[in-house]
Simulated assay, not measured.
Amino acid sequence: MGGDPRPGTRCRACGGADGRVVLDLGDQPPWDRMPHRDVPLPDPAWPLRMWLCAGCGLAQLEDDADAVEELHGVEPRAMAEQSDRSVGRLAREGLVRPGGRVAEFGSPHGESWLPRLTGRGMTAVDPAAAPPDGVDLVVDFYGLLHEPDQAAALDRRVRLLRPGGTLALQLLPLGTVLRDGQWFDLRHGHYAYWSLPALDAALRRHGLGVHRAWWYPLSGGTLLVTARAGAAPDEATRALLDEERAAGVTDPSGLGRLQDAADGAHRLREWLAAERDAGRTVAAYGAASRAVPLVCRAGLDAGLLAAVGDASPAKQGRRMPGSDVPVVSPAELAALRPDRVVLFLPELAAEVRAALPAVEDGGGRWVVLDPAPHLLEPDRALSRG
């Protein structure tokens, strides 16, 4: 488990040099470099390792690949519904109000929150041109994840706030990644994997403190966090902080469980080989960033996985990085009449099954990784047969 860091490694949040590698996925192609199908293998690859800072507890990408093109996906309904819930929660807390000013740091993982916020009477402000007296609310929708310099990124967000203003962040906490063994959430271009305790400590170095945190089931457990100057966590948030500490989110031995989970990726390949030998065709759905390390770590190819369906036109006609597995449209996926479809984004099960009834109508079964492949029971309500 773990290993020695690259010489010269410094924490992206506190600048400390004391730490260790807690997850090593070897050389991996960047998830956002999705080649066209006619581009020959092999693809360029770079080391993909998670480094844990011993000083501040931030788990982070040790090094990164060269900057590459980022393909935007189609926002799933589940993500849009979560954005509605998050903005609704901020409104109920009195943080979204007519006449208030808001600045947003967004990401490729969903649509902007600004239409929801301006629709409630707030005025959107460009973070690069904020008024000198600041804004009332800064929202970060997975934006922090994409910042190589976490200290500078937090400073930019805090400096935008007027006195008494609030920073709101939505993120997938390290506690969820660790609890569910989601080692494949480590990928190039995603620089920081914040636990709630490490985030609280970092914000306090920048003059804020976590005040509230609300848990939602998206992606296994997503947090909406608010922070402001002089704030102390409420009782429910203290319970979430204690829960993550107990899980070992700042402990190298605790995070070592992610390496154990990653080392079990071969089981997916073995299952696919058994399905092929039984004469069954297997495809997958969701050419998402988290699918890339999974496909590469398991060593999958088109002989085992016929295709990956995805609703994003920008990804169709390409292939999974590091593999010859093609990315196809949902209609093309259904036309394959697969016997099994592995859902790389299990939180989208209801949405995808409703959109692709032809899979089950044709006798196919949906599969989730839990962590071994698990067949979902047929949903008769969705069937058109």
Rank of each mutant, 00 (worst) to 15 (best):
R290K: 15
V325M: 05
Q60C: 07
A80F: 11
E244R: 08
A151G: 14
L48D: 05
A273N: 04
A227P: 08
W51D: 04
A124E: 10
R157S: 10
H109K: 04
P40D: 13
T9I: 04
G256A: 07
T222G: 13
D38E: 14
G254C: 09
Y142D: 15
R6N: 12
H36N: 09
A298G: 08
A227Q: 08
P293E: 08
C56L: 02
A130G: 14
F184Y: 13
F344V: 07
A247I: 02
V139A: 08
R257F: 12
V22W: 03
S83R: 03
A246P: 12
A291F: 10
D64G: 01
A236Y: 08
R162F: 03
R290P: 01
D339C: 04
M1Q: 07
D370Y: 08
D38P: 00
M79I: 12
S219F: 04
D140C: 15
A198I: 02
D234I: 09
P326W: 00
D32M: 02
R89D: 07
L169Q: 15
A227K: 08
V102Q: 07
R269S: 09
V158H: 01
D32I: 00
P173W: 09
P217K: 06
C11T: 00
V22P: 00
M34N: 06
C53S: 10
D277S: 15
P313W: 15
A287K: 01
L114H: 03
T123D: 12
T237H: 09
L300H: 12
G119S: 06
P127M: 13
L336Y: 06
A67R: 14
A201H: 05
L203S: 02
L348P: 01
W194H: 15
S312Q: 09
Q182M: 14
A381S: 15
R49L: 12
G364S: 06
D149L: 06
G279A: 12
S86N: 15
A284T: 00
L376N: 08
Q170K: 11
L304W: 01
A314L: 13
G121C: 14
T222L: 13
V177L: 12
S195D: 07
G286V: 07
A124R: 11
L300C: 10
P47N: 12
V87Y: 00
G362Y: 09
P35G: 09
G256K: 02
E332W: 00
M50E: 03
G248V: 05
A229S: 13
Q316G: 01
D260T: 10
M50S: 04
A350I: 03
L95I: 10
P346C: 11
V249Y: 04
R33W: 10
A287G: 04
M50K: 02
L294K: 05
L167Y: 00
A231F: 03
E69T: 08
V139F: 10
A80H: 12
G94D: 11
D64T: 05
V96I: 11
